[in-house]
């Protein structure tokens, strides 16, 4: 039910943003109805139980995002160096499996997406306790293997403390 309400609120907010007509009662009603319908279908699609998720995540994610943006900028500069000065900064692709410590599917998704979002590392396949990563350079792989991002996502996941 909470999942439905959150989805409904997000969808309706999105509808309001796109429509721009906030005074016409008929349009508002139609927007509410379509958001409710879409949220209902969305709840039916989500087959796994959502009990493992904690609301604390909503509060902690913005902090994580700020950190992630910093990482993205750093990783971008690294790839830019490797594109323009391939002799000074050669590429050395690495492919390997790294452990992940998130418990929920959403946590794993956030971790894998964060890996892919930072240029220089791409998550290829995610299993229950490991993620297969391709990295552009050994240093990018080593940074990821140090596990800082993994710990931060698990913290943002916010289960039991």
């Amino acid at each position: 039910m909470l999942y439905f309400l959150l989805l409904f609120a997000a969808l309706f907010g999105f509808w309001l943003l796109l429509s721009g007509y906030w005074a016409n009662p008929l349009l508002l009603l139609l927007g509410l109805a379509s958001s409710a319908l879409a949220a209902w279908i969305g709840t039916r699609l989500e087959q796994s139980d959502t009990r493992g998720y904690s609301l604390r995540m909503l509060l902690r994610l913005p902090g994580y995002w700020v950190w992630l943006v910093g990482e993205i900028v750093k990783a971008n500069l690294d790839v830019v160096r490797r594109v323009w000065r391939p002799h000074t900064y050669p590429i050395s692709p690495v492919i390997g499996h790294l452990p992940l410590s998130q418990k929920t599917r959403l946590g794993k998704t956030i971790y894998a997406n964060s890996i892919t979002l930072t240029p220089g590392t791409v998550a290829i396949e995610v299993s229950d306790d490991a993620v297969m990563v391709h990295a552009l350079s050994e240093s990018a792989y080593a940074d990821l293997a140090a596990g800082d991002m993994d710990r931060r996502v698990t913290w943002a996941e916010g289960r039991s403390g």
């Binding site: 690495v94 492919i95 390997g96 499996h97 490991a130 990295a135 293997a145």
Partner: peptide
Amino acid sequence: AKPGESSSPS
């Protein structure tokens, strides 16, 4: 691509 130190071989 070099193999990284892998926790579980695929």
